[in-house]
Design a binder for these strands. Structure first.
Lengths: 193, 193
DNA sequence: CTCTGAATCGGAGGGTCCTCCGGTAGAGTG
DNA sequence: CACTCTACCGGAGGACCCTCCGATTCAGAG
C-alpha cells in the first residue's frame, strides 16, 4: 500500500487501531443479530470516540475488517481464468462473490462502502476489485466472448446492486438468476457470442 | 395469512391515518435533508405511537406515501408499448423509473420496501409493478425481441439493484449504462435478437 | 341517554448512532 | 530526567428510532 499517512501513528493509537480491528472482525464473524459499535469499542477496551476517530463510519470499519478477505477473492481471478473460458470465469467469480456475501452478511455493508466511495482514495479495496473485474473483462474481450465496451466500474456497480437486491441466503437463487442476466448482458453482441 | 381487514377503521383512526399520509407526502417532497418520523407525527398532530401503529416501519410509510405515483408509472406501460417496439419500451420504462427515483430521493426507500416485501400481501404496489413488467416482457416475447425465460420478479429485483447501486443524480449516467446492460441481458438469445 | 367493552391514542423510556471538547499521555529536546 | 507541545483518548450529550402500556375515546346495546 502506498503511504497515505505521512506521519506514523503514535504507539497507543496504533495499538488501539489493531484492537478495534480485531474486535470488529470477531464481532462481525460470530454475530447473529445486530452488531453495535459501542460493543465493539468496549470489547476492544477503548472508548467510542476512539472508534469513530479511526473509522469515521460503520462502513469504513466493515471495509477495513474485510479488506483481507476481499483481497483473497480478487486474487482468485488468475486461477479462474486459467481453468475456464473468460465468460464462464466471470460468471464463476461473480457467483463466488455473492456466495461469500451470503455467508458473511455484514460484508454487504463493506461492499456498499467500497462502491459508494467513488473516487475516494481511502478505499483501497475498490482498486483491487476494479483490477479483478478488468482482468476478467479483458480476457473476455480478447477471446471474443464478452463485449469490449463495458466499464469495470459498471460491472462493479451491478454486482453491488445484485448483492443489495438479493443478498440474503433466502434469495440466493434469485441472485444467481440476476447474475445470469448480467453476464448475458456482457455477452450481448460480443464477436463470438 | 388470509386475514382480511374486514373491520372498517374507527373514525378517529381513519382521520389520523389521512393526516399522517398527507404530512408524510409533504415532508418527503419538500425536504432536503433528513426526515424524522417524529416531525411527521408532530406535523400531523398525532403522537409518535399512532404513526407507528399505522405504519410499522419507515418503509411502510414511504410506500404508502408514494403508492399513487408508483401506480402512475405503471399505468404508462400501455402507452409506451403502443409507440415503441417492446424491447425499447422496456428500456424506456426502466429509464423513466430511475429518473423518477433520482428526483424523489426518498422514494428509493419505498422501492426497497416494495421489493423486500417478497410475498407480503400487504404491499399492493408490488403487484402493480410486477404487472407492468409482465406486460413488457410478454410483449417482447411475442415480438421475439426479448427472451421468454425471465421472471418479472427478477427484473424487478434488478431494477431495485440498479436504483440502489446508482440511485443518486450524481450517478444518473451510470444507472443508464446499467439499464443498458440489463436490457441487453433480456435480449440475449431472444429469437429475433 | 348511559353504559361498557374494545380499540385507539400518545408519550415516556430504553437503545443506538455520532459529535464534541476537556483531560491526558506519548515523543522529541536540552 | 524534566519539560513542552501536540495528538490522542473517552465519555457525556443530543438526536433519532422504535416499543410498550396506561389513559382515553369511540360506537353500539339497553
Amino acid at each position: 500500500m502506498s503511504e497515505t499517512r505521512v506521519r506514523p501513528l503514535r504507539a497507543d493509537a496504533q495499538r488501539n487501531r489493531e484492537q478495534l480491528l480485531a474486535a470488529a472482525v470477531r464481532a462481525f464473524a460470530s454475530d447473529e443479530g445486530d452488531v453495535t459499535l459501542d460493543a465493539i469499542a468496549r470489547t476492544a477496551g477503548v472508548g467510542i470516540g476512539t472508534l469513530y476517530r479511526h473509522f469515521p463510519t460503520r462502513e469504513a470499519l466493515a471495509e477495513a475488517a474485510y479488506r483481507q478477505e476481499l483481497a483473497r477473492l480478487c486474487d482468485a481471478v488468475p486461477e479462474l481464468l486459467a481453468s475456464l473460458p473468460p465468460d464462464e470465469a466471470m460468471r464463476a467469480w461473480l457467483d463466488r462473490f455473492i456466495d461469500y456475501l451470503a455467508t458473511k452478511r455484514h460484508m454487504a455493508a463493506a461492499l456498499r462502502a467500497v462502491i459508494a466511495s467513488g473516487g475516494n482514495p481511502f478505499a483501497e479495496s475498490r482498486d483491487r476489485l476494479i483490477g479483478a473485474i478488468t482482468a476478467l473483462l479483458d480476457a473476455g474481450a480478447a477471446a471474443g466472448s464478452l463485449r469490449a465496451d463495458v466499464e469495470p466500474n459498471d460491472v462493479l456497480a451491478a454486482l453491488s446492486g445484485v448483492s443489495l437486491a438479493a443478498g440474503d441466503q433466502a434469495q440466493r437463487d434469485q441472485a444467481g438468476r440476476l447474475l445470469d442476466l448480467l453476464v448475458d448482458g456482457l455477452r450481448y453482441r460480443a464477436p463470438a457470442g
